[in-house]
Amino acid sequence: MKNVLVVISAADSSDKAVEFAVLAAKKEGGTVFALYMLEGGSASDVSERFTDMGFIGDKPSTEVSEAIMKEYRQRGYEELGRVQIKCMEEGVPFEPLMEAGEEGAGGDFVARVLDCIASRAIGLAVVVRSKKKTLARYLTKPPEDRLKEAAPCRVEVFD
């Protein structure tokens, strides 16, 4: 194990997960890759709700959706900055990544993380268990568990 991947999002971030990832990379002399998952679903849900039942037109609906995405992106930079500070404190090399993708029936989240694991020679992946409850979660395994099964490396899940 050399490189460590820590996956965070606007809804699911954990200081413990970040700390664990940074200390693991320090111990192994590897790099921390922090992957921020940009959740476009919430923004498009709001936009759909406005289009379907809202009393306002396309322009304000789109503006709200864009405001949400802008906020998520900014939050992503802040979260990644937090990981970077932790890495700097521990003297661990750091690389930020931001990807659009989230849990869904198509397994977008899992596919994105697996891509990242393969392309960055990751030896340990640290993920935070999603707090969001969707219908798909009751019909299928949680994405964290699917990731554990499919990943070629060790996967640690934090609640």
Binding site: D45, V46, M53, G54, I68, E71
Partner: peptide, 10 residues
């Protein structure tokens, strides 16, 4: 939509 907006803030 007002509730959807509030929750989307995370």
């Amino acid at each position: 939509p007002a509730n959807a907006i509030a929750v989307s803030s995370n």
